[in-house]
Simulated assay, not measured.
Amino acid sequence: MKINQYSQTPLKAYSDNRAKDVAGKTQNQQQSSTATRDVVNVSSQAKLLGTARQAATDSPDTREQKVRELREQVRSGTYKPDIRKTAMNLVRDEVDFLR
């Protein structure tokens, strides 16, 4: 009676299947960890907008003081705008708009 004749084949098949299972689990773990990562892509326009917004936030509020002064001049009746300068600015804006 030969006992060793049949004993190696079933054990080899078991070890081959076990190696495949371990390799499959490792690959599944890599795929699942890759799938759970979030990726954010920011366009160049969004970056520029963010930079502009930050610059506006960081800039001092010098216009606020000017607006207060002009408001007081209008209320007191002492505000005298330069009509020529206003007209030139309106014409310039229209020409720029038409280009």
Rank of each mutant, 00 (worst) to 15 (best):
Thr78Phe: 04
Pro10Phe: 03
Asn28Pro: 02
Gln73His: 06
Ser33Met: 15
Asn17His: 01
Asp61Leu: 03
Arg71Asn: 15
Ala13Leu: 13
Gly50Asp: 05
Asn41Gln: 06
Ala87Met: 13
Val67Leu: 15
Asp16Gln: 12
Val91Ser: 10
Gly50Met: 07
Ser15Cys: 01
Lys66Gln: 09
Ser43Arg: 02
Leu90Gly: 01
Lys80Val: 15
Ile3Val: 07
Ala13Thr: 10
Asp82His: 02
Ala46Pro: 02
Leu98Phe: 05
Met88Gln: 15
Gln54Leu: 08
Arg68Gly: 09
Val95Ser: 00
Pro10Met: 05
Thr9Met: 07
Gln5Leu: 13
Leu90Tyr: 08
Ser33Asp: 15
Leu49Asp: 11
Asp38Ala: 09
Ala35Cys: 02
Leu98Pro: 00
Gln54Ile: 01
Ala13Phe: 02
Ser44Glu: 13
Glu64Cys: 07
Gln30Trp: 02
Val91Lys: 12
Ser43Ala: 07
Val40Met: 06
Pro10Asn: 02
Met1Cys: 00
Ala56Asn: 09
Gly77Cys: 04
Asn41Leu: 10
Met88Ile: 06
Lys25His: 02
Glu72Cys: 03
Gly77Ser: 08
Asp16Arg: 06
Arg68Ala: 12
Asp93Ile: 02
Ala56Gly: 06
Ala52Ser: 07
Leu98Met: 09
Tyr14Phe: 08
Gln45Phe: 08
Leu98Trp: 11
Lys20Ser: 06
Gln30Ser: 09
Arg99Met: 11
Lys25Arg: 12
Asn4Leu: 05
Pro81Asp: 07
Arg53Leu: 13
Glu94Thr: 02
Thr78Asn: 15
Arg53Tyr: 06
Arg63Leu: 07
Ala52Thr: 01
Ser59Arg: 11
Val22Glu: 14
Gln5Glu: 15
Val39Ala: 09
Gln45Leu: 13
Gln54Trp: 04
Arg53Met: 09
Gln73Val: 04
Ala13Lys: 08
Ala19Glu: 08
Asp21Glu: 14
Ser7Ala: 12
Ser59Thr: 10
Arg99Ile: 11
Val91Gln: 10
Thr9Val: 10
Asp16Pro: 01
Gln29Asp: 14
Ala52Asn: 08
Phe97Glu: 15
Asn4Gln: 08
Tyr6Lys: 04
Ser44Arg: 09
Ile83Trp: 07
